[in-house]
Amino acid sequence: MISQLSVFVDNRPGSMANITEALSEAGYNIRAFATFDTPEFGILRLVVDKPTEAKEFLTSKGFVVRVQEVIGAELKDERGSLNYMLRKLADGNVNINYIYSFVIRSGKAPVMVLHTGETKEALKLLNEAKVTLVNDDEL
């Protein structure tokens, strides 16, 4: 599992930069970054090194932050591998709330980050399907 940070941001210029600036000044490394927006506000989701520490840091700077455990799955760099994983989860009746991808090591396939209400079931399905799972310590 991966500990992801979710930050509440207003939908306006500069609200994301405020966060990345704070994190980079404090020397945290951002591995992945994705936003989900509504007309008024957005949720910024981040995978960073030292998530617990980074959360404390952002909270002390006045941001509203949550740590969310999400599943990290490393895909094979082959045509159809994303479809393969999603199909397995769908067949197992697992609903995905959100999903995004990032690459951590050059030359390697992307890591998919996904959140679901049925984590246990999803992990079982992914293991059965022989999908490589990624944890915090491997980032």
Partner: peptide, 15 residues
Amino acid sequence: EVDEHYFSDEIRKLD
């Protein structure tokens, strides 16, 4: 103002 007590990671819950 949103604070940590009721901030959720899911847009649906914030709505």
